[in-house]
Write a protein that binds this DNA or RNA. Structure first.
Lengths: 326, 326
DNA sequence: TAAAATCTGTAAAACGTTTTAAAAAATTGT
DNA sequence: ACAATTTTTTAAAACGTTTTACAGATTTTA
């Protein structure tokens, strides 16, 4: 029946004031060694745990960061999340993670929730709409990672992202070097990164002296089962001997189709390396993002903004690592 | 410069008391239509968002559940997390997710944090130590999923879990039916589920009239790179023609070695189905856990306990689905 | 040993909400 | 028109902390 003990209970049991308990437990120098120990003992004995809600309301800080990701089932984002958690924990911050499922409604909900919970700052991998983040966020600091808001939206925030153009250009060039002559591209229809990856693809073709052919440039939604159809279209009808897939999740469906079609000579490239690519019959060329570094950079910058709200926003680009197999 | 608006600001701007604002925004019937609309308008205009910390401290409820998972990179747990988020959202609850990385220290930290944040209930996939959860949790309701505390620890909590014995027995029997005669097992050394899966393995051997051989029963840590060595030991030295792998993560290393060894006739079985198993040269037999149902059950039961703290704890077992390929 | 300085402790205010108790306003019945 | 009732609003208390301003001890200085 006993309710949770409060600081008042501890104070009474230790024969001391609430203020002293507070200070004793937060290792303030303003309490004698002896009393601190007495208070600590009583607190332990009662299993007292300070109510961080009450604390948060008083000190106007929660030591919590919010993180918004569009897809918790996407390996890339779970890895990124883990690195961000680590980096944050290192600085004494906790991370409240919310998954938006690529839905703008859920993203809005998540943002509101985080603001109501008074997170000190927010890390956003955007779901990609025309959201006016500045209006929603108000004075709360934020930072974007991987998925940035569209260019026509004014964002006074930092952005941390991999150089998609450069990386994609490398991958496609590598496919060309491996002998491909006609390389198709299947891109994500929604995400911010798609535009950049398409640019990189074009760059590589240009560097290789190849004229782009819009017939072999397609965009798909990740939940679209006709990715398989598109794959067939490109490799059979259009006779592509190379294929670049611009999205993690889409890659799965492409592989499913390729497995069925059994085309051992197709040159395949994609973004975001997966461990299990090693076990596939097809040697895939990928860009491995420097996820740890991304995570650390994000946290470092966000904390810097917490410390100094005047800090000018900037865009930080990191290089991906190209993985070739065989 | 402007600080976040509080209820007081809204009250002043709307020419009404704070109490009225509170009631207007929470759709209490005790405020006139006209005033509610006026208040709502002012609140919108000021971008007012109630401070849920303050609210939580007053009503002693946060409408938040905590969820503790041992490995955010393990597909099984991310999927489970997602289902739990969905189920919780459906009942108006949010989920605070924390990853323990299989570390008891991190698990303890996560538990404390959640309690301090006053979550209404906690969902635990245990990291597997001798933790006295009842002592830590105090009066906070909790429920275990997948990874339960060891049998020697008294737990007055619900437990939701798949029938590992039965599922493993099915898988191994299937491998036998497919022609395997000597099936080795590589199990996780740490997790709770390992014991049960070993039992299922023995059951299947017994059913098939085969005498177990402890030389081909090994346990590994997921971070242990000599999983590859163990694999070699079993399939080369011990001449196993079948292999059951009791853990998701360990499976990856096994596959790496098998790819190198190139043994097309080996019969392979594992727990937790992965989409990409479809793309592998080896047809793997797996148990697919009813993750959606697990998630829903967990949330339903936990909320039931919130509503009625007297509810007797019980263990709920669900059946896994066996997936055979080719 | 008195004055000054330093430690250690306390009472009360503050944080932003919700809710209780009571007052004010509107509505109803006669 | 006025009492009785019901509806709407408010002032103040409460939630569990931290912190400010102050006071009582203790130590240092001269």
């Amino acid at each position: 029946m006993s309710q949770k003990p409060t600081i008042k209970d501890v104070a009474k049991a230790a024969g001391v004031s609430e203020a002293t308990v507070s200070r004793a437990l937060s290792h303030s120098p303003r309490v004698k060694r002896a009393t601190r120990q007495k208070v600590q003992a009583v607190a332990d004995q009662l299993d007292y745990r300070p109510n961080s809600l009450a604390r948060g309301i008083r000190v106007k800080q929660t030591h919590t960061l919010g993180m918004i990701i569009p897809d918790i089932l996407n390996d890339y984002f779970t890895q990124l999340t883990r690195e961000i958690e680590d980096a944050a924990a290192h600085s004494g911050y906790d991370v409240l993670i919310m998954n938006t499922d690529e839905s703008l409604a859920k993203e809005a909900h998540a943002l509101n929730l985080m603001l109501e919970k008074q997170v000190d700052g927010i890390i956003i991998a955007s779901a990609g709409g025309q959201t006016d983040y500045a209006k929603i966020l108000g004075t709360t600091p934020a930072i974007f990672v991987d998925r940035m808001p569209p260019a026509n939206i004014r964002t006074p925030y930092d952005r941390v992202i991999v150089d998609n153009v450069k990386a994609t250009c490398h991958i496609v060039s590598q496919l060309l070097a491996q002998g491909a002559t006609r390389i198709g591209i299947i891109n994500s229809a929604v995400s911010f990164t798609a535009t950049e990856r398409l640019a990189g693809y074009h760059q590589a073709l240009h560097d290789g002296g190849i004229t782009p052919d819009s017939a072999i440039e397609v965009a798909a939604r990740t939940d679209n089962s006709n990715v398989q159809q598109m794959t067939r279209q490109l490799v059979i009808n259009q006779k592509c001997d190379g294929l670049f897939v611009g999205d993690n999740t889409i890659m799965q469906e492409v592989l499913r189709k390729l497995t069925a079609l059994n085309l051992p000579t197709l040159q395949l490239g994609g973004f975001d390396d997966q461990l299990w690519f090693d076990f596939l019959p097809h040697p895939i060329v990928t860009a491995r993002q420097p996820i740890k570094q991304l995570g650390q950079t994000v946290v470092t910058r966000l904390l810097a903004h917490l410390a100094d709200p005047q800090l000018a926003p900037q865009e930080i680009r990191l290089d991906a690592q190209i993985i070739t197999r065989q």
